[in-house]
Write a protein that binds this DNA or RNA. Structure first.
Lengths: 108, 108
DNA sequence: ACTATTCATCGTAGATCAACGATTGTCCGT
DNA sequence: ACGGACAATCGTTGATCTACGATGAATAGT
């Protein structure tokens, strides 16, 4: 049977790429959250407003160096910041960047 | 001295991991969007409700096989679905999964 | 039947990730 | 000044991603 006769699912309009200037930014932010350990770290920081690296290590079944790597990735994305507090380092969420992630996702 | 006198940035409450049962799911969904090409593909499908693979290939500076890989990743995440339409394949967004991504991110 | 079109898959090469142990650097308290 | 605690970095090992061309499978049209 000619199934083509009833426009099954596809548009006919010319394809034009929409707003994609921030595709890279969205991809970067999403990438930061694209690992379970980083999701847990981020949630931990969100719920506690701040947290020392050591406490995060205690909560995850990962080596200290691995956690530090994840923290670095999150920091590079801008989602978290770390400020030195003596020999410790205190991490906290950058609410502004978190909002950017939320709005970019919500705008999908 | 007790540096606690100035409460620099950190809580003192016991650290407890919050809801992390869906950390993996969020990571998976985020991972699907953690690449500019996949962001563009997803936006393309969202704006058009459906689209044939070939049209997507035309819009991206990537080889057909590469686009097909990205489509596979998006399909595995559940964000999109593909139904065969003759020799072509028509992709469309799974709004339900997209909403799950949005709500998981919004709940951060 | 044959051909052309469309898309998925295979195989490959290079880059990046994720994990760890070990090391280094920095700061506080003694 | 020295030792201990904390965290970043280094170096390494597999695993996975990303990209491509080439090949393969399925379908529509002649």
């Amino acid at each position: 049977m000619a199934k083509a006769s009833k426009t099954p699912c596809c548009d006919d309009q010319p394809v034009v790429l929409p707003h994609d200037g921030d595709a890279q930014r969205l991809a970067d932010l999403a990438w930061a959250v694209a690992h379970p350990a980083r999701v847990r770290i981020l949630r931990l920081l969100i719920d506690r407003t701040a947290c020392v690296c050591g406490e995060i290590v205690d909560q995850l079944p990962l080596a200290q160096s691995t956690v530090s790597q994840h923290l670095k990735i999150l920091k590079q994305s801008g989602l978290i910041r770390g400020e030195v507090d003596g020999p410790k380092v205190c991490y906290c969420v950058d609410r502004e960047q978190l909002e950017q992630l939320k709005s970019l996702i919500a705008a999908l």
